[in-house]
Nucleic acid binder design. Structure first.
Length: 283
DNA sequence: TTCCAGGACCGGG
DNA sequence: CCCGGTCATGGA
């Protein structure tokens, strides 16, 4: 098994990156390493000597460096953050998070499923979906089933997923994306407002899901999803008329720092654990 | 039993 | 534009 140096842990914090709410399919296993899949490839990651190592062959390194967004200058984005000192506490706490360049279709489905749902259950639904309809990959992993694979399924076939009313949303999205009527890749080249308007024509995709799709699926870092956690944070720490767009082209990164900080500290309703979230990750 | 979860949608005011 | 009810599911 190859051992390839991917990045310093100061630039890529695996625990934070995988548990900050942007993705649902990376797991930390009993051996202490993280496992996941994207674009048909799998990866095992672990920390050693202040570095992040992975089992990818050297030839795949450019792919994974891009997936982990290692060539984007976050310090430059952060320099435009104008907000209360509390925002800088969030930044300091969350530094090491990278905004992943996830598969657009997987991201769209994941955040359609996320609505009015909790993170452990979202993860469970997605896991079942991949085991049922994805392709088998190394490390006991599965790919996320593509739209054409899901499009012909019936709602009855979705029943075992316990996705509830969201199943119909997924099926309709699968039909439109699978048939080519809606080209997710093409949305990358559109202005944020146009890409957002396009994706919101899908049933079950409103403002919040659209923003998550733009940020995590299209890597449009100016997108600023506001959910119940973000709403609480904005109400408590920002002026009432605060406009997130004033945070600049990295507003979505600021959002991620805030969301992560709130979920780790905010004892608002309650705390919950998922298998990627336990924080005692020793280098 | 009631409330909540990374909401969306539809109706009425 | 904003408001309340509803949608399906499971954990606390």
């Amino acid at each position: 098994m190859p051992k390839t140096d991917l990045a310093p842990v100061s630039a890529l914090d695996l625990s934070k990156t995988f548990s900050c709410g942007q993705c649902f399919r990376w797991d930390r296993r009993d051996d202490g390493a993280f496992y996941g899949a994207a674009y048909g490839r799998t990866l095992k990651l672990w920390n050693a000597d202040g570095r992040v190592f992975c089992d990818a062959p050297g030839a795949d390194l450019p792919f994974w460096r891009r997936y982990f967004d290692l060539d984007t200058n976050y310090a430059a984005l952060e320099s435009a953050f104008a907000g209360p000192p509390w925002l800088h506490d969030c930044m300091a706490y969350g530094r090491g998070i990278r905004i992943l360049r996830q598969e657009p279709w997987e991201t769209l489905c994941s955040f359609i499923l996320s609505q009015c749902n909790n993170i452990p259950r979202i993860r469970a639904i997605i896991r079942t979906l991949c085991v049922q309809y994805g392709e088998k990959l190394p490390h006991g992993l599965y790919s996320f089933p593509d739209a054409a694979r899901l499009a012909p399924l019936s709602e009855a076939a979705f029943a075992p997923l316990h996705a509830g009313y969201r199943a119909a949303y997924i099926l309709e999205a699968a039909k439109q994306v699978g048939s080519g009527a809606l080209d997710l890749e093409a949305l990358k080249s559109l202005p944020d407002e146009d890409a957002s308007a396009q994706i919101k024509t899908l049933p079950g995709v409103g403002n919040k899901v659209a923003n998550c799709f733009l940020l995590y699926g299209l890597h449009k870092l100016g997108s600023f999803p506001v959910d119940v956690w973000m709403r609480r944070a904005l109400n408590e720490h920002f002026p009432p008329d605060f406009d997130p767009l004033t945070l600049g082209p990295g507003a979505g990164l600021a959002q991620q720092y805030i969301f992560y900080y709130e979920r780790e500290h905010g004892k608002a309703p309650k705390r919950e654990n998922c298998d990627c979230c336990d924080a005692d990750q020793s280098a």
